[in-house]
Design a protein around this nucleic acid. Structure first.
Lengths: 258, 258
DNA sequence: AATGTATAGTTGTATAGACAAGTAATTTGA
DNA sequence: TCAAATTACTTGTCTATACAACTATACATT
């Protein structure tokens, strides 16, 4: 009787509309809880309910002590599909940052071109990034991107921004299938230095191949994880066999949060 | 540094555990907000925050005016996925065999019982198997099975048969929710001997927890893979990070869990 | 110049209370 | 007997307040 539509939902709709209009685009700074309380003349719990919706849908990021910020567009709606490192960290309230170690444009090396199914001599962008969560080094990411697809965002800030978010914001490229292969390796010299571990520490190596929705390869990367700090977790596991290397596939079921 | 674990999160963990144990299985009726407020001695907002998590993850449904109900996630996957290593090997024309290294029945050790959500002193079957593909050692499988569920097939031939096939053939137990966590480790002595690798070779460690379709834990296992011979392959789903609280010794009063 | 220290502002968590809205069973009244 | 009203519950929304945890800035001290 009183209100068929809850206040928090009306506030959510209004804020979403404003976000879409780019109202908070400078610095992406979003009003604080207190400001919204005054603006809408409701209690803080109510505005937080609205903000929570926007956060869950990927429009906002909140940082304790700093404020609330707008993130352009959600990357993925389906949480079981490809999630970027950045989003994952945000979901856990961990500050994601990155350091560019290397960045160059070159014709695809034979092996890489083969994996990525590129034309002979087609250019790729090679980027090595060290990724941090709350300023602790977690992952070395050695990526090759299709130059053709990556070119529009190549000069943007890749240290504080999610590559996938930049991609979605500034291009029409949309990501599709991804797959990955997981191995165990020993820390070499670069891993030792960047990840701050002992030589020969066992690490996870994840080889990922990410396609666009049209089937072209967007990215091939070999990521090295500090296994003691970040775990690989899956709920469903298809499997495949690689006859070339005499590696076998793997089935399995899943498991749980300990 | 160490951020304290919020109350609502601990309550969430505790309730999830109880749901998995089938505590609210009759009529699926879940305690009302008010009951939980009394039980945990917190405010309603706090229990609702915990319930919200369970709702978002699909464990609960709420109906205004009626109450809160448990929804069991039943099996959604094809039986192929549950068949396991044996079936996989057959599909690729590789001869699967296994060698039982250890097999015993014992009361669940504290840590294992905790992970598997077992009653205090409940029995488990511990089996260590070395699994081969074409007579090459591939996996050390260190499993704990719920004795209650495993008992019907305990004396069958586990060296040439798939445990899951035996299970489906001779019992009514059906597998449901499952997931796994992947880490990298160094080969220790047993790995060296059984998998025939050097000491300190990097290996994959997969921790799996497999539930029945009623939510009880059927199996917990820690499997060690020769990473040079077997690759782990998935089509989606990246990393996960722990909020890192395995709390709860057993059976305190509910309001004492903080 | 470097370093520590208030402090003001932010989000995160928690409390206690209130009323609205929906459901189911019981009671009441014709 | 039947239907309406009452009631006792449930979840949904909202308010008001408080403190904890964290960040950035300004300022003081060394």
């Amino acid at each position: 009787m009183d209100q068929p539509v809850p206040k928090y939902y009306k506030i959510y709709e209004k804020l979403l509309k404003q976000i879409r209009q780019g109202k908070y685009s400078e610095n992406n700074l979003f009003p604080s809880d207190t400001e919204l309380v005054k603006k809408f003349r409701v209690s803080r719990g109510t505005v937080r309910e609205a903000i929570k919706l926007l956060f869950q849908q990927g429009y906002l990021v909140r940082e304790q002590g700093k404020g609330t910020f707008v993130t352009y567009k959600k990357i993925q709606q389906d949480p079981d599909r490809l999630i970027g490192f950045t989003q994952l960290m945000r979901q856990h309230n961990i500050k994601p940052t990155a350091l560019i170690i290397e960045k160059e444009i070159l014709p695809a090396p034979a092996h890489t071109g083969h994996i990525m199914n590129l034309e002979n001599g087609e250019k790729v962008v090679r980027i090595v990034r060290l990724r941090f969560g709350d300023n602790q080094p977690l992952i070395i990411e050695r990526s090759f991107f299709s130059y053709k697809l990556f070119e529009p965002i190549i000069n943007m800030n890749l240290e504080t921004n999610s590559i996938y978010e930049l991609l979605y914001e500034h291009t029409d490229t949309r990501l599709g299938d991804a797959n990955q292969r997981i191995e165990a390796i020993s820390a070499g010299q670069q891993e030792q230095e960047l990840l701050e571990v002992e030589l020969s520490t066992p690490l996870l190596l994840i080889k990922r191949l990410i396609h666009t929705d049209f089937g072209a390869v967007f990215q091939y990367s070999e990521d090295v994880y500090r296994s003691d700090r970040i775990n690989f977790y899956t709920k469903t596991v298809p499997y495949s066999i690689d006859r070339d290397h005499h590696t076998l596939p793997l089935e399995l079921e899943d498991h749980n949060i300990f």
